[in-house]
Design a protein around this nucleic acid. Structure first.
Lengths: 139, 139
DNA sequence: CATTCATGTTACTATATGGTGACATATGGA
DNA sequence: TCCATATGTCACCATATAGTAACATGAATG
């Protein structure tokens, strides 16, 4: 969790400021997985997909949660580089950074795609079958 | 429990006055995210990518962990439908099931992939206007 | 300068989870 | 039958995490 950086001079409080740089050199995907594990954080990212939001606006999207809870979730997302923050005045604009998600897609989803194409067929015959029988054996 | 799908044929022309609702469909792949959050379980799935293995063989692949730990991890993976088990005799063959991963790719990676493309565009505009940042501007 | 508003930080609690050893169950072979 | 092997369950502990209330900080406004 980073401290507030002083933003540029406030021109108006309705339009988001310029987006920060997309820091993308994140080789450790562990924090990303951890951040994505929580459904609230996934919904938070989903909300940010529509566009950058201030922290207060994000808190307003989750009336069931305390404001501090949302802030902590944002901190986890920021540590995972899934959210980048840029402060302008006393507002804090949260930007979605989808690059780590794309990393996951490249390094994880891709290799596993071969399985639901090939191994799924042999697996499908086992799924609805009661265990304990010896048909087919070790592939 | 299955949630309703919302088809969005109806386009909104401009920014609506009502606050944008966060689509909070907590689908059945919550356990999948939870299962994937742990690095040991990811390595377990990685080992199963080479082919089905008995529980004992999998335990042998993780000498640092107790056998019970591996079994519990396999239980989490099985609850998430990422691993399907079939018993043969007194052995237990664990099969990888990549379908939930594919569903994550469809429902998550896909929508976010469109975003990191636009994020790069935003980055470009940010680079072309380097003056408005606060870097070094703090008196 | 004082006030207000948006935001962040500091304890604190409850629950979840990873990890382990001891014990239990079932299967195959002597 | 008896015994070894493969696997799963139970009780337990340490840590992590989601969540909260109360308090603190910092910027805009009068």
């Amino acid at each position: 969790m980073r401290r507030l950086k002083r933003g540029d001079e406030a021109e108006r409080a309705s339009a988001p400021p310029d987006p920060p740089e997309v820091d993308a050199d994140e080789d450790d995907l562990g924090p990303v997985w951890k951040a994505l594990a929580d459904p609230t954080r996934r919904r938070l990212l989903d909300a940010l997909r529509a566009g950058p939001q201030t922290t207060g606006a994000l808190c307003a999207l989750f009336p069931k949660l305390a404001r501090v809870t949302v802030i902590k979730h944002l901190g986890v997302l920021e540590d995972a580089d899934l959210v980048v923050v840029r402060a302008r005045g006393r507002e804090r604009w949260n930007y979605l950074n989808a690059v780590p998600i794309q990393r996951i897609a490249e390094r994880w989803i891709g290799p596993f795609e071969a399985h639901w194409a090939s191994a799924l067929l042999s697996l499908k015959s086992h799924v609805e079958r009661p265990a304990e029988s010896d048909a087919g054996g070790r592939p």
